[in-house]
């Protein structure tokens, strides 16, 4: 579309709200999340379990588990709004424009069909190809993801592959229709550490070759640091900080990000205890007033317990923290103000 959106931006999420109506309360799993994904970029989405990373991914591709639903905000892909599309329209987006990779490769493939059949089915759903053309494409996809003897393994069943190989097949399936965006939901969590690096490197290389953007959902900061261009740190259904990966890792601005980075063990420094952030993320039905992080925050000050901070620019990043809000600069505790 011809509005002011930068042509460079592939996906734009604005003020996304996801709600889960339960018997007792209406839970807001995502509360006003906004971010952009540029073409060819890898955006990391990190946070603790329950911060809303996976739900953000599911909401973008329209696969929220009922009763979850998008209650507000917009998701725009290539200038076209894709939230709330009719099911038939959304199906043309899924796989063709946005693909998704799930956590567990052992359960992501249908055990009763050969991988070739699953690939051909996906290819033929989105591309106008004959059976033999689709099979040829399936073989080349399997070769791309590094399955040895691809044409012979085409008729093999998922149980005949190891976990790492299955995740490669899953990646081949995700790439089958040349999507513009891949949402990878903890793609390596279920794999051996030695295999994790290979799969991440593969995903990164394939997407770079094709110019495919990636939203990489993970709680592994190491993976993010190696793979992502930018990173969004989520906490309690909101973005705490978002910015270029080097800035967020080396110069975090939000106290939560500071704590998260401080919790990464460093082999060079001696220490017998691992650093941690005191307390736990609040339950969705017991969110505190003001900033959700304030009860755990070491630098809490006056506005934190009553007002909710919005994202504001700090250096090259954006952080939702009053420490960086000029309006509250004179209220800052002296040690914090330095």
């Amino acid at each position: 579309m011809s509005d002011q959106t930068d042509n460079d931006i592939l996906l734009s999420v604005r003020d996304l709200v996801v709600e889960f109506p339960t018997r007792h309360a209406l839970l807001r799993a995502i509360d006003g999340v906004s971010f952009d994904v540029r073409r060819g970029e890898v955006l990391g989405l990190v946070g603790e379990s329950g911060a809303g990373k996976s739900i953000t991914g599911a909401a973008i591709i329209g696969l929220l588990e009922p009763p979850g639903r998008i209650a507000g905000g917009t998701v725009t892909l290539d200038g076209q709004r894709i939230d709330g599309l009719p099911l038939d329209e959304m199906r043309k987006v899924r796989g063709k424009k946005i693909a998704m990779i799930f956590q567990d490769p052992l359960t992501s493939l249908n055990p009763l069909y050969s991988i070739g059949r699953q690939l051909v089915e996906t290819i033929q759903t989105h591309m106008d190809m004959s059976e033999s053309e689709a099979r040829a494409r399936a073989v080349s996809l399997l070769e791309d993801v590094g399955i040895p003897a691809a044409s012979e393994r085409l008729d093999a069943f998922p149980h005949e592959f190891s976990g790492g190989m299955r995740q490669r097949v899953v990646i081949a399936l995700a790439l089958a229709a040349e999507p513009e965006l891949i949402i990878a939901d903890e793609p390596t969590t279920a794999l051996d550490v030695s295999v994790q690096a290979q799969v991440i490197a593969l995903l990164k290389r394939l997407c770079a070759d094709r110019g495919t953007s990636v939203i990489l959902v993970t709680h592994d900061m190491g993976v993010i640091a190696e793979t992502a261009n930018r990173v969004a740190v989520m906490y309690s259904g909101r973005i705490a900080e978002i910015g270029p990966v080097a800035d967020v890792v080396h110069e975090p601005h939000h106290p939560y990000t500071v704590g998260l980075m401080g919790a990464i063990p460093d082999l060079d420094t001696e220490g017998d205890r691992l650093a941690q952030i005191q307390g736990a993320m609040p339950r969705l039905d017991r969110l505190p007033e003001g900033c959700a992080f304030n009860p755990r925050c070491p630098r809490r000050f006056e506005p934190c317990a009553t007002k909710r901070p919005e994202l504001m620019p700090v250096g090259a990043s954006l952080a939702s923290c009053f420490l960086h809000d000029p309006a509250y600069a004179d209220l800052l505790p002296r040690e914090a103000a330095e």
């Binding site: 199906r91 043309k92 987006v93």
Partner: peptide, 9 residues
């Protein structure tokens, strides 16, 4: 879920 995410009918 994965089959749905691939846009199968």
């Amino acid at each position: 879920k994965f089959a749905r995410a691939r846009g199968l009918s």
